[in-house]
Design a protein around this nucleic acid. Structure first.
Lengths: 231, 231
DNA sequence: CAGCGAATAATTTGATCATATTCTAGCAAA
DNA sequence: TTTGCTAGAATATGATCAAATTATTCGCTG
């Protein structure tokens, strides 16, 4: 099988260096994480091949990964959709985050360098600007990145994976609730957290993040009790 | 397109009603869970298409799912392998199970019916027989199924998913350690657990399962310190 | 002349796509 | 309401292209 002196056709495929299924995965992940797909909405393969301009195989693989992470739901027949959370589901998520986030913050506090703290501070300031500007999408993205960075600093990859995965589950609902309540009265215990971290007060950091989690997540849970105001 | 003697060449396919990718996923999952794939071992798509007698697409999707669950590892280049755990990884897993398992057992105790308890007891007895018979594979499978059933009884699907996923991560290492130590001195706090559950002593059940987890997992962790006896 | 290393060839494996087949759901007709 | 048909979407295969590891060759140095 000679290559017949392949001439390299200058295809200039212009892809980054990542495989297509990885690119599609990240795009689809962001779609879920930031609530661009509503809870309960159906997700079709062909719909995504058009929306994301990709082939069928990469889309299939991306969907499988997201299903495995709990970001999407396989409906038994061959349908896939964004999961609808129940109050009980939210309670589980709150419980899990109430344990994971403080633990990771505690470890992060012990390990964070001044540079790390500066990075977190910058993220939090950008976050504040998004809130002031009423930029919901920016808030959701920066808030996630703030916590994600905190997870990474803990140097506990498996626990960080678990915590990270939870965001995919409540992402769509978080968007709905924030969209309804506006960006003004959003909780932000990040200042307390950063202060504790600078003082190397690991316990204090854990307490601060716990309050941040409870405030944010309870808002979502309570919105399930009040039977959705039409909208 | 009547069926009218469609070719049926592969008539003996004898598949149940599940799609191929689901079947392949479960087979591959068991391979990891029960340590038929050694830690560090490379996993190739084409190798699995032959080993499991399946097409390429179902195998690819199964692999993606297992990677998302942490059961397999994507090596940056395009290689996939069974993860090699570090001592730190094991510590994280122990920590996570120390929180998840007692919590789920507590909930399971509150909800278990007499029938459920009977089922668990039967599983545990089968488990004992496997140990007596020196049947390592049987032990691994029944031990997993015992805990898995416990998770289900807790009626907390998200937390159960998390706990279940952890087994995939330490499965290969567990097999190695148990294979080295034999099946005789395996921990079994299941008797204490079942007794507490029958008495509806949720706190006691949580304590029992915590000890079971610690005993089993610590054995694995300590085997990492002692630098593997050749082999 | 022997041993080592870099460059290149070859083989293996992964990624993607086009296509055929199978299944589901919706609709029409009895 | 039930049953059969049809349209369309999902599943699965094999072919093709691309990339990476392995093997090989050739030249160099000791």
């Amino acid at each position: 099988m000679n290559k017949v002196a392949g001439k390299l056709t200058e295809s200039a495929t212009a892809k980054g260096r990542l495989p297509a299924h990885e690119v599609i995965y990240r795009q689809l992940r962001d779609l879920v994480l930031y609530g661009d797909l509503a809870p309960g909405q159906a997700v079709t393969i062909q719909g995504l091949t058009e929306r994301l301009g990709a082939g069928m195989t990469p889309v299939r693989e991306a969907i499988r990964r997201l299903i495995a992470e709990g970001a999407l739901e396989f409906q038994g027949n061959r349908r896939v959709s964004v999961p609808l959370l129940s109050v009980d589901n939210m309670s589980e998520l709150i419980l899990a985050r109430q344990w994971l986030d403080p633990h990771l913050s505690l470890r992060a506090t012990e390990r964070a360098t001044p540079d790390d703290l500066e990075e977190l501070t910058a993220l939090d300031e950008a976050l504040d600007r998004s809130i002031s500007a009423g930029d919901l999408r920016g808030y959701l993205e920066l808030n996630y990145r703030f916590h994600k960075r905190l997870y990474e600093l803990a140097e506990a990859p498996i626990l960080a994976d678990l915590a990270d995965g939870l965001w995919l589950r409540f992402g769509p609902s978080l968007r709905v609730v924030c969209g309804r309540l506006g960006t003004q009265n959003l909780p932000d215990k990040h200042k307390d957290l950063l202060e504790a971290m600078r003082a190397k007060d690991a316990e204090g950091a854990a307490r601060a993040i716990r309050e941040d989690v409870i405030q944010g997540m309870e808002q979502v849970r309570q919105s399930f009790d009040a039977p959705a105001v039409s909208n």
